[in-house]
């Protein structure tokens, strides 16, 4: 009776590993591809050719051309640089910053904790888009300011995760043992606490990549992010939205790109979460 169960478990484990490899490779392809995007586009993404405007999908232009005759495929590929890199930068920044705040809160406790947590509550209380509008109004539009706005409202989530995880770690016996073996506070944090709270934070970050990509595209769509003619998926969709009924490919191409990349990063996040789950019996 026992054998089949073991086999199923192994199957599940192998399956998980395969998933991890597949989505990891896909995500890596997206990241590397977007880095070298200039070299990958078949045409100059900013070259206008009005005689060939709004051309439908063809072999020469697989995603068609927009109303200025620019090749959509090239624009989508180049747009990945803005979209994917800004998102990764944003997520990396809020992960590091949020974690640092969370660990400091949990470690110092009392007043510092209360003050920092109330500040984070304040940021959580702002509706994202309204805050982004305010930032755009003060600092002006642009991808950079959209990132600042999103960073300001999304770091508290990481601070909360890191704080609760650190609080749990702080009470463990091994941390007391480490302190007795002469570890300084800094050493306790980077050698024992950070490696042990890394899992949940990594999962939060991975799952956030998709969300942040959408939000960034959303802000650009509203004209608060990337400014034309810079190719960015959100602003490309916004730019061409009145062509949706007559020349749908112009809007759908960047939409499809957002859909695919968000899905890849979300599935990767899900897989990493399953993989780090202690019940997975690693």
């Amino acid at each position: 009776m026992k054998e089949p169960t073991v086999r199923i478990q192994n199957l599940h484990k192998n399956h998980l590993k395969t998933r991890l490899i597949i989505f990891g490779v896909l995500a890596l392809l997206l990241i590397v591809g977007s880095y070298f995007s200039e070299y990958l586009c078949p045409y100059d993404p900013y070259l206008q050719d009005l005689s060939n405007a709004k051309a439908p999908c063809s072999l020469a232009h697989p995603f068609g051309t927009d109303r200025f005759g620019r090749d959509m495929l090239s624009r989508v590929i180049v747009g990945s640089k803005t979209s994917i890199y800004s998102t990764l930068l944003l997520v990396a920044f809020i992960t590091v910053f949020g974690t640092a705040v969370g660990v400091v809160c949990a470690w110092s406790g009392k007043r510092v904790d209360a003050v920092l947590m109330r500040i984070s509550d304040m940021f959580l209380a702002f509706p994202g888009l309204v805050f982004a509008l305010a930032v755009a109004a003060v600092l002006g539009g642009g991808v950079q300011n959209a990132i600042i706005a999103l960073a300001a409202i999304s770091w508290p989530k990481y601070a909360r995760v890191a704080r609760s995880q650190t609080l749990a770690q702080k009470e463990t016996v091994y941390l007391r043992a480490a302190r007795l073996s002469g570890c300084s506070t800094w050493k306790l944090i980077y050698r024992h606490i950070l490696p042990n709270i890394f899992g949940p934070i990594l999962v939060t970050a991975m799952l956030d990549i998709g969300t942040m990509m959408m939000e960034l595209a959303g802000l650009s769509f509203l004209g608060l992010g990337a400014k034309p003619p810079v190719a960015e998926w959100g602003s490309m969709m916004s730019d061409t939205r009145n062509l949706l009924t007559t020349h749908p490919w112009v809007t759908l191409a960047p939409g499809f790109a957002i859909f695919v990349s968000v899905m890849v990063f979300n599935l990767l996040g899900d897989t990493v979460r399953d993989w780090l789950d202690p019940r997975n019996g690693r």
């Binding site: 463990t172 016996v173 043992a177 007795l180 490696p195």
Partner: peptide, 27 residues
């Protein structure tokens, strides 16, 4: 120095026993 009640909890789950012992010496 001190020895704790729950042996398996008194070592960092992500580090080997050797690491745990060496840490004290390194410190």
């Amino acid at each position: 120095q001190m020895v704790f009640q729950t042996p398996s909890d008194s070592f960092d789950p992500r580090r080997t026993l050797g690491d745990g012992i060496a840490e004290s010496l390194i410190n």
